[in-house]
Amino acid sequence: NARWTTEEQLLAVQAIRKYGRDFQAISDVIGNKSVVQVKNFFVNYRRRFNIDEVLQEWEAEHGK
């Protein structure tokens, strides 16, 4: 399903906090979204969920 429920959106943001840009890991956490759908989520929801800021926090924690 290409549509993202609110629950899936929140799950994705939590997974980004945990896995950074590991699209496969994020896809696995959500369970019903492909890697391509996760990559599209990054692009389409970047502003709404401040994904750049979430990634900066992840990179700071993981030394990337």
Rank of each mutant, 00 (worst) to 15 (best):
Q24N: 05
A15R: 02
T5D: 05
V54M: 13
V38A: 00
R48F: 12
R46C: 03
D22Q: 05
T6W: 07
K39V: 02
L55N: 01
N1Q: 15
Q9A: 11
L10A: 13
Q37H: 06
N40H: 14
E61R: 12
E7I: 06
K18Q: 13
E53L: 12
V43D: 13
Q9Y: 02
V29R: 10
L11C: 07
K18M: 09
L10T: 07
W4G: 03
T6P: 13
L11R: 13
N40P: 01
R47F: 12
R48S: 11
R17E: 05
L55P: 07
K33F: 05
S34T: 13
K39R: 11
F41G: 02
F49C: 14
V43E: 13
I16K: 00
F42E: 00
R3K: 13
G20Q: 00
L11W: 06
R3E: 14
R46A: 14
W4N: 01
R48C: 10
L11S: 06
R21N: 13
E8H: 07
R21H: 08
E8F: 03
R46E: 13
W58H: 15
S34E: 07
R48W: 03
N44W: 09
Q14N: 15
E7T: 12
I26K: 01
V13N: 04
K18P: 01
R48Y: 11
R17C: 10
R47V: 13
I30R: 03
R17D: 03
D28K: 12
Q14P: 00
L55H: 01
R17Q: 04
Q37T: 03
L11M: 11
V43R: 12
I26M: 00
N40L: 09
T5E: 04
W58Y: 10
S27F: 01
T5A: 03
E8R: 01
V38I: 07
F42P: 02
V36I: 11
I30F: 11
K64V: 13
S34L: 04
E53H: 11
V54H: 07
L11N: 12
H62W: 08
V54Y: 07
S27Q: 04
W58V: 08
Q9L: 13
F41A: 02
N40M: 12
A25R: 12
Q37K: 00
A12W: 02
K39P: 04
V13D: 00
N1D: 13
I30L: 08
K18I: 07
V43P: 01
R47E: 15
I16S: 00
E7Y: 08
Q24F: 08
T5S: 11
K39Y: 05
D28C: 10
Y19H: 10
S27C: 05
V13K: 03
Q9G: 14
I26R: 05
S34P: 00
Y19M: 07
D28R: 15
V36F: 12
T5P: 05
N50S: 14
R17S: 03
L11F: 13
R48Q: 15
N32D: 03
L11I: 11
F42L: 07
D28G: 10
T6R: 14
V13L: 14
R3V: 11
L10K: 11
L11K: 10
V29G: 01
H62C: 10
R17P: 07
A15N: 09
A2M: 14
V54I: 14
R17N: 06
Q14G: 13
I51F: 06
V54N: 05
E53G: 14
F42K: 03
R3M: 14
Q24D: 10
E53T: 10
N40G: 08
K39N: 04
I30E: 02
V54K: 08
Q56M: 13
V38Q: 09
G31P: 13
A12R: 00
A25Q: 08
R47T: 14
F41M: 01
V54D: 04
A2I: 15
R17G: 06
G31L: 03
E8G: 04
F49Q: 10
V43K: 11
E8Y: 03
D22L: 01
N1Y: 12
Y45C: 15
F42A: 03
K33G: 01
Y19K: 06
